[in-house]
């Protein structure tokens, strides 16, 4: 097995990493780039906690080889909004009490961002379907759905 320097585009910046071929995107983000906002609950594609955007589409970073994401745009929770102006979803999740322990939250927010970007005005059903692969053990999803609905109703952001 070899290691090589690979450049990934993460949150709009080129990031060069010496990585082994067998690294998953999750490992690179968390262990090499110190972007620990992306969580993991199973490492096997079963919980959704590791979701990040690749070219705007939410994927499970624990299932994706980092090398397969070369030449693609990766967005993690750290890349949404900016310090001064967080993403409206981040504000809404906070205000609606959509995070309890907060462990599922980054992936939920990421998934919701992709939904809103791709979908003018999602219905409650659309929202439930979009986050069906994101398990949350604390909230019962209710306030998460409300938070997403509230941003959806504000129109395109």
């Amino acid at each position: 097995m070899s290691e090589r320097i690979v450049t990934l585009s993460v949150n709009g910046e080129p990031r060069s990493v010496i990585m082994p071929d067998n690294a998953t995107l999750l490992e690179i983000l968390r262990d090499h780039l110190e972007l620990t906002g992306t969580k993991h609950g199973c490492d096997l594609g079963e919980c959704g906690a590791c979701a990040v955007l690749v070219d705007g589409v939410p994927v499970l970073s624990c299932l994706v080889l980092a090398r397969d994401t070369e030449d693609h745009q990766i967005t993690t929770i750290e890349g949404l909004g900016n310090g001064a102006a967080p993403d409206p979803l981040q504000v809404a999740f906070a205000e609606f009490g959509a995070a309890q322990c907060g462990y599922c939250t980054p992936a939920m927010v990421i998934t919701a961002r992709a939904l809103l970007d791709g979908h003018g005005s999602p219905s409650e059903e659309d929202i439930r379907a979009a986050i069906a692969g994101n398990l949350c053990r604390c909230t019962g999803y209710i306030k998460i759905i409300e938070a997403i609905e509230s941003v959806a109703s504000m129109g395109p952001t």
Binding site: M1, S2, D21, R30, D31, D43
Partner: peptide, 13 residues
């Protein structure tokens, strides 16, 4: 620390 894959060579035709 995340669960990692066994080592392998990666080819990308």
């Amino acid at each position: 620390m995340t669960t990692h894959l066994p080592t392998f060579d990666y080819r990308r035709p």
